[in-house]
Design a protein around this nucleic acid. Structure first.
Lengths: 188, 188
DNA sequence: TATTGTTATACTCTATAACTATA
DNA sequence: TATAGTTATAGAGTATAACAATA
């Protein structure tokens, strides 16, 4: 089973303008409050569901948004590296970028240093659409995190960053043998 | 995601020197540290990967573990409710429980109050296997969260609980129309 | 009429293998 | 020989529709 399947799940909903932080709409099922795996999955499902509408008009929804985000931020040097950053297979990245390109949101530029590589960049149109999506996402996130104070929200983001930064790159994660080999090396 | 969107004009050149950032095993790709969706997905991917081996011998891996966990904790009154708690379709839950049952880890008991329902409970063997898996998972989680202090880890779990508890039940999430209908009702 | 559990089927998404071109 | 990108295809995973039993 692949870690990618998680991205399909969706959950939860933005509370309808009613004031309901304390009158919790839903309790955590017995025992699961002690289950980090469930908590992470549940929060990610809730996130996906909350953001779904904000990115509905982008090709491939939330995943397309992340690809466009990476393109706009020049997070990767080529298509393969972007795929690794997003945790998707490189064959999946092909049609993901294809569709962003068809929509005029991203483009493949030749890499002057390596004629095999393509730099994935956002077009001006893509940046506009990205900004629009980010506004909508920001609103959805506000509701998602409504139970947390501003300080808590900041702390949460910081901790997620720490966890993510502490992990090995998705490259190796996708290739368990490489991880093991590297760990052996590191222990020497 | 905070209010600041990506600067449209000031997209810098891709970092020319592609050398890996020093000590840390892995750095966060440019921009993604401000992207809550990516952070959540990345952390969940890391979790899934870290825990994968700990639950490899259970039917359906991590998902099977969660189902068994719910069964052992009597989190749900029947199969359908458990499916909702785990964010899976009820047709998926059928063979999930089927395989746990075949492995002797869980069982379907008749519900005295409703002859349509089946109570999903863990067998003694299932509880043993669950305890073993939890030990292994706990070790994996220790590594996953190694970048956080004990207090931070506690705070993180608390915040994830708050977020999860603030969302509506997965029931409605699995059926967007129902959510809309309920929101309409709620607003009346 | 609605809900629980089930089965069979169709669909979506993902990964594997093979290929070209570069390095 | 290894890597980037692509394509086609097989596979895994998921949801839809229909059914029987029960409420």
């Amino acid at each position: 089973m692949s870690a990618h399947a998680i991205e399909h799940d969706a959950v939860a909903d933005p509370p309808a303008s009613a004031e309901a932080p304390s009158a919790g709409p839903c309790a955590i099922p017995a025992g699961f409050d002690q289950n980090l795996g469930w908590l992470l999955a549940q929060c990610f499902r809730a996130y996906t569901y909350a953001v779904e509408r904000a990115v509905a008009d982008l090709p491939h929804g939330h995943r397309g948004f992340q690809a466009l985000y990476g393109a706009a931020n020049c997070s990767a040097h080529n298509q393969a590296e972007l795929a690794k950053q997003l945790g998707v297979d490189r064959t999946v990245m092909v049609y993901l970028v294809d569709d962003l390109e068809k929509a005029g949101l991203a483009e493949r530029l030749p890499d002057p240093n390596d004629r095999r590589s393509r730099l994935i960049r956002a077009t001006p149109t893509g940046r506009e659409r990205l900004a629009d999506a980010q506004s909508a996402i920001s609103a959805a996130e506000t509701e998602l995190l409504a139970a947390l104070s501003d300080d808590e929200q900041k702390a949460l983001r910081g901790m997620l960053c720490s966890i993510a930064a502490h992990q090995r790159t998705p490259v190796e994660a996708a290739n368990p043998c490489a991880v093991v080999d590297e760990m052996k090396q590191a222990s020497n």
